[in-house]
Simulated assay, not measured.
Amino acid sequence: MTKASALTEETAHRTLVAVCEQVGLDPAGAELIRIGSNAVYRLAKPVIVRISRDSETVENARRQVAVARWLASKSYPATRALDVDQPIELGGHVTTLWESASEREEYAPLTQVAELIRRLHDLDAPASLALPQSQPFAKLDEYLPDLELVDLSDAVFMRERIGQLRSRYDALDFALKPGVIHGDANVGNVILDRDGDPLLIDLDSFCLGPREWDLVQTALFFERFGWHTEDEYRAFVEVYGFDIMTWPGYPVLAEYREISMTLWLSQKGVSDERAAAEVHKRIEAIRTGGSRRDWAPF
Rank of each mutant, 00 (worst) to 15 (best):
V270K: 14
R119K: 11
V270F: 07
D202I: 00
T95S: 15
A18D: 09
T95Y: 00
D141N: 07
L129G: 10
E238V: 04
F298E: 02
E284V: 09
I51M: 08
R292T: 06
P77Y: 05
I33M: 14
R292Y: 09
K281L: 08
A12R: 02
S55V: 02
L97D: 09
S205L: 13
A81S: 13
S37V: 02
L208D: 04
D231A: 15
K74Q: 14
R168Y: 13
R274D: 15
S205R: 12
V49Q: 07
A30Y: 11
P210F: 05
M245K: 10
E230Y: 05
Q112V: 04
I283K: 03
I88V: 15
V40L: 14
L116P: 00
S102F: 08
L140K: 01
A296V: 12
S128M: 00
Q112K: 13
E258I: 13
V23T: 04
V19E: 10
W213N: 09
L129W: 14
H228F: 14
Q133V: 13
P210V: 05
D184E: 14
A296P: 00
D146I: 07
Y41M: 05
C20Q: 01
L253I: 05
P136W: 09
G249M: 06
A125H: 11
S260T: 05
R282K: 00
R211L: 10
R168I: 06
V47L: 14
R53L: 01
D141I: 07
L140R: 04
A101V: 02
C20L: 09
I181M: 08
L25Q: 10
G209M: 08
A114W: 03
P210W: 10
W98M: 08
V279D: 09
S5D: 06
C207E: 11
D243N: 11
K177Q: 15
V40D: 06
Y76P: 01
R104F: 10
F137I: 05
L43H: 11
K45N: 11
S102V: 06
L265S: 09
I259M: 15
S5C: 02
D83N: 13
T2W: 12
Y143K: 14
T8E: 01
S291A: 08
D272H: 12
N186Y: 15
L208K: 05
D184F: 08
D272V: 04
A6C: 02
Q22N: 04
Y169N: 06
A275G: 06
N189E: 04
G269R: 00
R14K: 11
D154W: 06
F242R: 03
D193S: 04
E56V: 10
P210S: 07
P145G: 05
G91L: 07
P46L: 02
H13E: 11
D141Q: 14
